[in-house]
Amino acid sequence: MQLLGLHHVSILTGKAEKNYEFYTKILGMRLVKKTVNQDNTESYHLFYADAEGTPGTEVTFFDIPGLGHSYRGTSDISTVSLRVRTTDALLFWKERFTQLGIHHDSIEKRAGRDTLAFQDFEGTRLILVADNVEPGVRAGIPWKRDDIPVEHAIIGLGPVTLTVSIAEPTIGILTEVMDFRFVSSYPSLDGEYPDIMVFATGEGGSGAEVHIEPRPDLPRARIGRGGVHHVAFRVPNEEEYHLWALRLKEHRIANSGKVERYYFKALYFREPNGILFELSTDTPGFATDEPLETMGQKLALPPFLEPRREQIEANLRPLELN
């Protein structure tokens, strides 16, 4: 029983329209599902991914207009990475960001890979990471756009960085409960703080890594717009999903219990530093209720919310995504 890698990350946005424009028109990702937050159906939930909504390529956003700022610190998913194929792709994106006025850094080495850090319009800290034919978990299928060469397109999720005050409790959950393994470490870019530690699961590679950044000098983060709400990890099927539920119970880890999200099944729990983890099944996927060709074009509701569609649509603010 082994987790395959990263499934998705979920982030908070205060402006869904600008969010859509950034992640589709600037980054070239596909909106594969426009639905609602199942825990608050007055809020939209947008899913961006590769061409087919493949698990391990998804960045999702909860739309909360008027949401306040994020304040960085510990107990935080501080960066989210997106995979590209090569270092040449990073050069393309660096030039594109410069032309479009997107805040970005220089190309730097992180964990032995070429990377390019940048931010979206709400300050979400993102990193493009070049695979460069590295073995590991398979990447996704690029969504084709005329202004982004397919060989430079985003092809999935890369490592997430967890910034914590004390690393050992988080490492314990990753290695003793979730069966991650220590891979390596690398220095922080400024060199003033402890090395960042790399842990991997499944076939490894950038789509299956968590990076732990110890920062005892920082205050606890406060999440707002642009902040990462949780990170989800891939469970291959329902059989193993049930086994993971049992494992959490055996380790006496407080959790949500089994949650039916229709597009996947989920389990939620907080690791000792307070970061929210989710275990999500690869199945059944986003093409369950929409044809692959037209995914994301209409408001999709799972069957258990469909009887309330009229009420839900009446309580949602108008959202024009062009």
Results as ranks from 00 to 15, higher is better:
296 G>M: 05
102 I>M: 02
59 V>W: 02
196 I>M: 12
208 A>T: 09
174 L>Q: 12
195 D>L: 08
218 L>Q: 15
17 E>H: 02
291 P>W: 06
146 D>C: 03
137 V>G: 00
52 E>K: 13
24 T>Q: 06
291 P>L: 11
68 G>L: 14
174 L>S: 11
237 N>C: 12
321 L>C: 08
75 S>H: 06
309 R>N: 01
277 F>L: 04
18 K>P: 00
214 P>R: 12
209 E>M: 14
93 W>Q: 01
272 P>K: 10
264 F>H: 03
46 L>C: 12
260 E>M: 09
285 G>Y: 04
319 L>W: 00
66 G>Q: 05
159 P>T: 03
193 Y>E: 14
210 V>N: 06
89 A>W: 02
246 L>S: 14
157 L>N: 11
77 I>P: 00
276 L>C: 03
193 Y>S: 15
177 V>E: 01
95 E>C: 00
41 T>N: 04
181 R>H: 13
306 E>Y: 02
178 M>T: 01
193 Y>M: 12
82 L>T: 09
66 G>P: 06
263 Y>T: 13
161 T>L: 13
94 K>F: 01
86 T>C: 07
199 F>P: 08
276 L>E: 09
163 T>H: 11
288 T>W: 08
163 T>Y: 10
241 Y>D: 02
99 Q>K: 14
194 P>I: 12
137 V>S: 05
87 T>Q: 11
4 L>N: 13
99 Q>G: 13
241 Y>M: 15
4 L>D: 08
242 H>E: 15
314 A>R: 10
101 G>C: 00
111 A>E: 09
238 E>Y: 14
137 V>F: 02
8 H>W: 11
78 S>W: 06
167 A>Y: 05
117 A>S: 15
45 H>S: 03
170 T>Y: 09
5 G>D: 05
271 E>V: 05
295 M>F: 05
280 S>R: 01
308 R>D: 07
254 A>C: 00
9 V>Y: 00
259 V>K: 14
92 F>V: 08
192 E>F: 04
48 Y>G: 01
90 L>W: 07
226 G>S: 06
233 F>H: 14
303 P>M: 10
100 L>S: 08
95 E>W: 00
153 A>Y: 04
45 H>D: 04
187 P>M: 09
187 P>Y: 10
250 E>D: 15
5 G>F: 06
99 Q>P: 00
73 G>K: 11
264 F>R: 04
274 G>D: 11
34 K>P: 00
61 F>E: 08
33 K>Q: 04
271 E>N: 11
236 P>L: 06
110 R>A: 13
307 P>Y: 08
85 R>Y: 13
88 D>V: 10
194 P>N: 12
7 H>T: 09
139 A>C: 03
126 L>C: 03
52 E>S: 10
77 I>N: 01
158 G>A: 11
174 L>Y: 09
6 L>P: 03
72 R>Y: 12
207 G>L: 01
3 L>W: 11
206 S>P: 13
198 V>K: 13
198 V>E: 15
233 F>R: 04
172 G>Y: 12
185 S>H: 14
22 F>S: 12
295 M>K: 02
241 Y>S: 02
90 L>Q: 04
252 R>T: 06
250 E>I: 07
204 G>E: 09
288 T>D: 05
44 Y>V: 03
91 L>D: 07
319 L>C: 09
224 G>Q: 06
112 G>K: 06
37 N>K: 02
272 P>V: 11
194 P>R: 12
289 D>A: 05
134 E>K: 10
110 R>L: 14
48 Y>S: 05
202 G>W: 04
